[in-house]
Amino acid sequence: MGGLYGLVVILLWTVSVRGQDVGSVISKSMFEDFLKHRNDDICPAKGFYTYEAFIDAAKSFGAFGTSGDPDTQKREVAAFFAQTSHETTGGGPSLPDGPYAWGYCFKEEQNPTDYCVADPEWPCVPNKNYHGRGPIQISYNYNYGPAGKAIDYDLLGNPDLVASDPTVSFKTALWFWMTPQSLKPSSHDVITGVWKPSEADSAAGRVPGYGVVTNIINGIECGKGSNSGGEGRIGFYKRYCSILGISPGENLDCYNQKPFGA
């Protein structure tokens, strides 16, 4: 009986792990606490970003928030929401609960410009604008094209879908998060410890930690010493790690890192 019992326990554990999704890491109440002011009247994205849309989108990226030990899973969720909250923030130090409670206030870039560049694989569609939209503020035709292909939507032809369908919006952010970009590793591989720095990375100061994620998302903030952009990303991250009950880890900034490709 002991052998059979042990086999049953193993099978049940396997089923449990395989059936796990990010909803076991971040509950709806935590999501609401993360983004507590996103539905305030002053936020243009009021009513757009929902927990249900996030969970639905995450089902297309099964490794997100489910890789590694429990602390690693939580750290990835905190890092993702920290970076995307900074990209969409509507807060300031004088607003209720401080600046790091105001993520996801915007769903489109303010004062957008034309982000169409020549690209034979992902050519711009006439009269379409590829400015920043969604949690990661995805921009440029060369991102809209492959993101759309990955999630099975024509985002080159209909980029506005990223600002009108919340599930699609989250999917584009998760696609960017999970996918290596040119010379850059994926943010997912960095925050889960899969990425190991090469000799060139080490020489450029790129060491494992949240700082490299910032370097991936917006490397122009890196290698310039302390700056408001980096401080904001770290501020969100520390707040979310605190809500999830984990430490943020080491190497949180990219102040002394060269951008990828530099």
Rank of each mutant, 00 (worst) to 15 (best):
L183V: 15
D189N: 14
P159S: 05
I151R: 07
Q181N: 15
S169G: 12
N143T: 05
I138A: 07
N143P: 02
L183Q: 14
V190T: 12
N158F: 03
I138P: 00
H188G: 12
L155K: 05
A147F: 02
I138H: 01
S169H: 08
K149E: 10
G148Y: 01
A147T: 06
S139V: 09
T179P: 01
L174S: 09
V168S: 10
N141E: 05
Q181P: 00
P146A: 07
W175F: 13
S186T: 11
K184F: 00
L161H: 06
Y142T: 05
Q137D: 12
L174Y: 07
F176H: 14
V190H: 11
K184D: 13
A173V: 04
D189P: 08
T167D: 04
S187G: 05
S169Q: 11
D154K: 08
Y142I: 11
G145L: 02
Y144G: 01
P166N: 15
H188K: 12
I138S: 02
P180G: 07
Y140A: 02
F170M: 10
Y153F: 14
F176I: 05
I136E: 13
Y144L: 01
S182H: 11
D189W: 03
K184E: 15
I138K: 00
L155W: 03
N141Q: 09
T179E: 14
S169C: 11
A163H: 06
G145E: 01
Y144S: 00
F176G: 05
Y153P: 00
K184G: 03
G157P: 10
S164Q: 15
F170N: 02
S186N: 08
D152L: 02
P166R: 04
L156H: 08
K184S: 14
G148E: 02
W177L: 09
Q137V: 11
S139T: 15
Q137K: 13
G148I: 01
D160A: 11
A147R: 04
L183N: 14
P146Y: 02
N158G: 00
L161A: 14
P185H: 08
N141V: 08
D160R: 01
K184N: 13
L161S: 07
